[in-house]
């Protein structure tokens, strides 16, 4: 539940920032790629914090990390129980998701 609470809070902050700054309404929606992250890195901290898309993307990413965190906890439980068969299965699932993340970074 912690993951969706953090995610929901970040999204609400993002929409509050968006509603409070009408100048963003006409700005094309940025794609959260390395180029955009590079632009953000070159900005000042207040600029980053006031950018609604930073909060919205952070909320989406927090949500996307929730099931991955759940998988790590599941894997840890199997490890404590010394259930090597299911430790292996968890590692395979995490590897497939890792490939998906790797693909998205390379792409």
């Amino acid at each position: 539940m912690a993951g969706i609470t953090v995610s929901g809070a970040l999204m609400l902050v993002g929409f509050a920032l968006y509603a409070a700054q009408p100048s963003w309404y006409d700005v094309p929606i940025p794609v959260a790629n390395f180029a955009w992250l590079g632009e953000l890195a070159a900005s000042t901290i207040p600029t980053i914090l006031l950018n609604p898309f930073v909060s919205l993307y952070a909320g989406i990413f927090a949500l996307m990390l929730t099931p991955i965190l759940r998988l790590f906890i599941t894997g840890w439980t199997f490890l404590v129980e010394r259930d090597w068969h299911y430790v292996g299965i968890t590692v395979i699932v995490l590897t497939v998701i890792g490939i998906s993340i790797g693909f998205s970074i390379v792409h």
Binding site: G14, Y18, I29, V31, A32, N33, F53, L56, Y57, I60, M64, P67, I68, V96, I97, S100, I101, F103, S104, I105, H107
Partner: peptide, 16 residues
């Protein structure tokens, strides 16, 4: 989550 990253990488994720 396995496919979400793929869609994200293609720029299909509309944050709003």
């Amino acid at each position: 989550v396995a496919s979400a990253f793929i869609y994200f990488s293609y720029g299909h994720l509309n944050p709003l």
